[in-house]
């Protein structure tokens, strides 16, 4: 598998600003057009995803939020790859809506669902506010996201609550998954909660009850020097099948 270092992959990620600006500061300095080179997201989509994930998981005094942890890169890579194309998703019709407890029943792949929804959102926000989502105040962004979450809007065939839940889950996944997948940059999320990462063996420690244990987390994709190699084409199949 091709690997490139996190550094070279993301050196143009201007939007992923360093530092720990508070949530309010960030929103009052709206994220403008991203300079991150995405695989799949277009400029309008990035212009929604970046500020949206910054509201879902904001940076605060404890550390980076989803935007700073490069969760937009995670989402981009997932949607660009096999997962976005519907790998492991049962896709035979007939398509009909059931009860929520029967699970997802739309004909869209994840990539289709995101593309349709974000196109509709871009149009909707421009029509209503005359500016892009990124230029809204933090409060207005939150209100818009809450409206999506509440459902009722039709986003190109996608009920807005379904899109919102997909976006929120992707954001949380990208924040907490191994940085191999492009998010959780510098293992920032793991550091904030104290999760030690992929290298995990606690035979000696498990019965040291209540021990305070802090170790720099370790990624499955790090080499001996600590450089993390992002999986450009994230495999969903098992390791054996990828070899």
């Amino acid at each position: 598998m091709d690997t490139i270092s996190r550094r070279s992959f993301l050196k143009a990620a201007g939007a992923a600003a360093a530092g720990l600006a508070t949530a309010c500061d960030r929103a009052s300095r709206p994220v403008t057009a991203s300079r991150t080179q995405y695989s799949w997201l277009n400029v309008d989509e990035a212009g929604f995803i970046e500020p949206a994930i910054a509201r879902l998981v904001p940076a605060d005094e404890s550390g980076p939020g989803a935007l700073e942890a490069n969760v937009a890169v995670y989402i981009d890579l997932q949607l660009a790859g096999a997962w976005g194309a519907g790998e492991r998703l049962y896709r035979s019709g007939p398509w009909q809506q059931g009860k929520p407890t029967q699970g997802y029943q739309l004909p869209f792949t994840p990539a289709e669902l995101f593309r349709n929804s974000m196109r509709a959102i871009t149009d909707d926000v421009r029509k209503t506010n005359q500016v892009s989502f990124a230029k809204l105040t933090a409060a207005d962004q939150d209100a818009y996201l809450k409206a999506l979450e509440g459902g009722g809007k039709d986003l190109g065939g996608v009920p807005s609550n379904i899109f919102f839940q997909s976006l929120l889950e992707m954001t949380i996944e990208g924040f907490f998954s191994d940085p191999a997948y492009g998010g959780n940059k510098d293992m920032a999320a793991w550091k904030q909660i104290g999760f030690p990462g992929a290298y995990a063996n606690y035979y000696d420690l498990v019965d040291k009850h209540g021990i305070e244990f802090r170790r720099p987390p370790m990624s499955l994709a790090q080499d001996a020097s600590g450089t993390i190699h992002i999986h450009v084409e994230p495999p969903a199949q098992s390791a054996a099948k990828g070899r």
Partner: peptide, 18 residues
């Protein structure tokens, strides 16, 4: 987990694409 596998147990995720 929800349908996409996330750890949330609070919300019903009827329509998740993943």
């Amino acid at each position: 987990q929800g349908p996409g596998g996330s750890g949330e147990s609070k919300t019903d995720r009827s329509g998740n694409a993943r």
